Simulated assay, not measured.
Amino acid sequence: MAKGQGNVVAQNRKASHDYEIVETFEAGIVLTGTEIKSVRAARINLKDGFARIRNGEAWLSNVHISPYDEGNIYNVDPVRARKLLLHRKQIDKIDSELSTNGMTFIPLRVYLKDGYAKVLMGLAKGKKNYDKRETIKRKEQNREIARQLKNYNR
C-alpha cells in the first residue's frame, strides 16, 4: 500500500503487466448511495476500465460495480460512466498527455480514505509483447539472484 492510501478495495493486477505506468493521480469518484455500499463490500471490477477527458471533465468508463443486493429500485447501471474528481491543472495535464501517441488513463486501485472512495489512476503507455517478455525475464533473474544469495548466506 502506498503512502496515504487507506483500505484497498480493488486492484487492477494486469495494469503493470500490460502497461508502463508513467505517472499516478489520486481522484475522487462520484457514486450513488447504493454504489458506495457495493464498493465498501468490494464488489467492483477494474479489469477493463479506462478514463477519458470529455468537455474538460474526466470520466471513468467500463468499471463494473455490482448492484447492491438491498438496493431495489435505487440501483443504477453497473458499467455506467462515472465522473472523476480532479483538479483543473491535473485534467489539463492529463488531456495533453493523452493526445500523444500510445498513452492511456487507467484505474490502478480503488480504496477507501476517510470514508470516501478514491481511485488511483495511472497515466500509462502500452507495452509491446517483447517488453512484457523482458519484464518477466528480469523478474525471474532477480528472483534467482535472491535465491542464490539466500543459499550463499547460510
Rank of each mutant, 00 (worst) to 15 (best):
M1K: 14
K3P: 09
G6F: 05
N7K: 12
V9S: 01
V9T: 06
N12H: 11
N12I: 09
K14F: 06
K14S: 12
S16W: 04
S16K: 07
H17Y: 13
Y19N: 15
Y19P: 12
I21A: 04
V22W: 05
F25K: 12
A27Y: 03
G28N: 12
G28R: 09
I29E: 04
I29A: 05
L31Y: 04
T32I: 13
G33S: 08
T34G: 10
I44H: 04
F50R: 03
F50G: 00
N55M: 02
E57S: 09
E57V: 08
A58I: 00
N62S: 13
H64V: 09
H64S: 09
G71P: 02
N72H: 02
N72K: 07
N72G: 08
I73S: 03
Y74E: 13
N75E: 06
D77W: 00
P78K: 00
V79D: 15
K83H: 08
L84C: 06
L84G: 05
L84F: 01
K89P: 00
Q90T: 09
I91Y: 05
D92C: 09
I94H: 00
I94N: 03
I94P: 03
D95P: 03
S96H: 07
L108R: 02
L108P: 01
R109G: 08
V110G: 03
V110S: 06
Y111Q: 02
L120A: 13
A124R: 01
K127C: 03
K128T: 10
D131I: 06
D131N: 05
R133P: 02
E134R: 11
K137I: 12
K137V: 11
K139R: 13
K139A: 09
K139S: 09
N142A: 01
R147I: 12
Q148A: 14
K150N: 11
K150I: 08
N151A: 11
N151P: 00
N151W: 02
